[in-house]
Design a protein around this nucleic acid. Structure first.
Lengths: 218, 218
DNA sequence: TTGTCAACTGTCAGTGGCTGTCACTAGCCT
DNA sequence: AGGCTAGTGACAGCCACTGACAGTTGACAA
């Protein structure tokens, strides 16, 4: 049975809420400090102090400094995966991937906004791109997500990943293009979701022309 | 003027040779320890002790533990870039990339063998793939190499990377496919260069079919 | 309400990667 | 031979991270 709840909406109990608050506070403080004074220049002690908890507590909520820095982006990636799963079965693999990423942004923005200010989220991409240690961690996570996506695509088409190379290759192509897009967006001047959408569409459209034998004709 | 040299071939002086020996010894000891007892389980002190130098000296040769673990793979990537630069101008971009990687392996193997046993080099791919911290660092370096390649491809075709998306996209596609290939090869059973060549060719050939609208016809 | 249990937290001590400093040794060069 | 300096070891210290233990505070039942 569920425990006693005063109000309607399944309130999760004081303990749980407190935990959530501490978690979010740590996350916000971390991103705030990272984006203003830099990732490396920020110590875990500083973050903990800003939220008035012990350093040990920080490590009970996050496996490390990196995880705090990438938590929000992780969240957005999870949303992308969910968006892909929700695509209708009749769409071709790359069509589904494309639509999931293009249409998923708004939902992602909303989900993020419930935890941290959106501009903090957007700025964190720039921070990642210019911090070697973070970029490395980010790329590894992206690689893991790619594996998840491979499985989804394979299942959509009813194929076995181990025998048919197409799911993996298609996802690899998609992931590669998304990485370029992300890099250009994060380093470029316009850190808006609209800019991201346009860049993404443009680069995905450029895949076929890029594979052509001759580039000179256009 | 050059300094005095007893024998013919431009011997680099005792100091220089000593340095080279220490460097190589550290590299070999590190890889040996990493591949046998694991990366994380190996301390820098152990490596230093194995070569009988101080920990401080290790850090004068390598920026960190990671760099030691990835030094050989770095070398092989440099060789790949060189191989790409050496491709005849008439080859199409993806053709050049494909040929560079397929034909470059042997030269890479030889270059590596001059520093560490080849099997140590091959085994290090497995170690990287199964060590999160290393995989992260490796992917970041690969991303940097991709940027270098973009420039080369753009120059081959006389294009400006900032205005034409094709060089970046083409390289992104290529890099994505190479990453899948690498992962499968490293985790798979056959850690030979021949296996690598076959996997690479197969995956590159699978790009066009993977982009097709419908997959069911084949 | 109150007592018991379990979850959450702070404190402390310790490990390991990495860096700055400084004195010292040993190739190099005239 | 003797000065110069690159390369080294020894030492101290910072920071990310972890294990162990004890104190505090919600949760739940008697």
């Amino acid at each position: 049975m569920e425990t006693a709840e005063a109000t309607a909406a399944e309130r999760p109990g004081l303990r749980e809420r407190k935990k959530q608050r501490t978690h979010d506070a740590l996350l916000r403080a971390a991103l705030e400090l990272f984006t203003t004074q830099g990732y490396e220049a920020t110590t875990v002690d500083e973050i903990a102090e800003a939220v008035d908890v012990s350093q040990r507590t920080f490590f009970r909520y996050f496996a490390g400094k990196e995880e705090a820095a990438l938590a929000v982006i992780d969240l957005s990636q999870e949303h992308f995966v969910a968006a892909l799963r929700a695509r209708p079965a009749h769409e071709a693999p790359l069509e589904a991937l494309r639509n999931a990423v293009l249409e998923g942004w708004d939902a992602i923005g909303e989900a993020v906004a419930r935890i941290v200010p959106v501009d903090l989220y957007l700025r964190s991409y720039g921070m990642i791109e210019s911090t070697p240690a973070l970029l490395a961690a980010h790329l590894r996570r992206a690689d893991e997500v790619a594996r998840e996506i491979e499985a989804i695509v394979a299942e959509r088409e009813g194929l076995d990943v181990r025998t048919d190379p197409r799911p993996r290759v298609a996802v690899a192509v998609f992931a590669g293009v998304m990485r370029v897009t992300e890099r250009l967006w994060a380093m470029g001047g316009d850190l808006s979701m609209e800019a991201m959408r346009e860049l993404t569409a443009a680069h995905l459209d450029a895949v076929r022309p890029s594979l052509a034998e001759k580039w000179r004709n256009s």
